[in-house]
């Protein structure tokens, strides 16, 4: 049987240099029951899978392998490894394409290159990039620049409350004060 489903990616992982989890997402279709034997079903299985995976990939530098009946594409950096995992009968090059989107978009958004510190410091952007890459197992976009351009940076500064001092501004200030007061009163009650 040919697998014609769009649900091609099983998981995306980022592990640190000792195999500990930095980011993990095990995908499953949002409106279907999670089957009991899938990795998405239990944390224990995931941890086991990850430590097994790390043991097999650490220092091997082989980019692609099969582990636990899953196709694994990965890249190891100095103190962090990134993984993309798909079903065993998936088209390897399609998964590689998705992985390239993942890897290259991270390289674009993390200014100092992919390492543990920059992943942790820009965790929000990493999360957003993966969200733009894969949507619950469906490859959403593979072009790294498109992904990077859709990832917003954190708001640059604390935007101050802006009240204009004209008639409309006064009205809105009054409205704001009124709502604030009502809120306080409600909280007091």
């Amino acid at each position: 049987m040919v697998n014609l489903s769009l649900y091609t990616v099983k998981a995306v992982l980022i592990l640190d240099g000792e195999g500990r989890r930095l980011y993990s997402k095990y995908f499953h279709p949002p409106h279907e029951e999670i089957s009991a034997d899938s990795l998405a079903s239990s944390l224990k299985k995931q941890k086991e899978f990850e430590s097994n995976l790390f043991a097999k990939t650490h220092g091997q530098n082989s980019d692609i392998m099969i582990s636990d009946d899953l196709l694994v594409i990965y890249r190891e950096y100095v103190d962090v490894s990134i993984y993309l995992i798909g079903a065993i009968d998936e088209n390897e090059i399609v998964l590689q394409e998705a992985f390239n989107g993942f890897k290259d978009s991270l390289e674009l958004i993390l200014d100092t290159g992919i390492d543990k510190r920059s992943v942790q410091e820009h965790y929000d952007m990493v999360v957003l990039a993966i969200d733009e890459l894969i949507d619950d197992g469906i490859i959403l976009e593979t072009d790294p620049a498109t992904i990077a351009s859709r990832v917003t940076k954190p708001p640059s500064k604390d935007i101050p409350l802006n009240i204009e001092l004209n008639e409309k501004g006064l009205l809105s200030a009054w409205g704001f004060a009124k709502s604030k007061l009502a809120e306080r009163l409600q909280q007091g009650l």
């Binding site: 929000d124 954190p154 604030k180």
Partner: peptide
């Protein structure tokens, strides 16, 4: 809070997501 502080909120949500991602 009102008004919300977008920068702080984004940082908080990020930490929340990090927790969830760690299981």
């Amino acid at each position: 809070e009102s008004p919300v502080n977008p920068k702080l909120c984004r940082t908080l949500i990020t930490s929340l997501l990090e927790l969830l991602s760690h299981g």
